[in-house]
Amino acid sequence: MSSDEEVIMNESKKTLKGFIHELKEFLGILHSYDATELEWEKDGYGIKLSRKATRSHGQAPVSSNGKNRAKVELFHVVSPVVGTFHFLPEMPQVGALLKPGQALGYVRAVNVQHTIDVEKPGKLSEIHAQEGQPVEFGQLLFTIENERVS
């Protein structure tokens, strides 16, 4: 390899490294601000990133039993408002199978009740909320496991 070629290689490696670094930053920004779209342009080059908005924040697939046949997706059900969390008379149990639209509880804000319901079917894996607990916007209330066969 000539020294010129080496310089070019190193330059492109640097550019690629820089690009990956910037891409990571953009993804971080998208995630931390719960944004759905980000457009960036510099020196005539641009990038546009978009992702699907979900109120229940999906998490990266977790492998089960070290095999790839079934993947478990975790969904976080968070409070959409500031208020006080309450369970419904029929309290959900860990392990219960949940249907979309099923109510798990409600957050009582000033004069208004916001129902907390399930968006996707799955198994209730963890209850983070407590009866009568003050909750803030985005506070984690439930974790739901969504098992899908790939």
Binding site: V82, G83, A109, Q139
Partner: peptide, 25 residues
């Protein structure tokens, strides 16, 4: 108390969430 997403309209101008924050605290 976190009162909303980044845009001011959804957080620092979000009257229901701010009133609720005052009540729960």
């Amino acid at each position: 108390v976190c009162v909303g997403s980044p845009s001011a309209a959804k957080s620092y101008l979000n009257v229901p969430n701010i009133m609720s924050a005052a009540q729960i605290t």
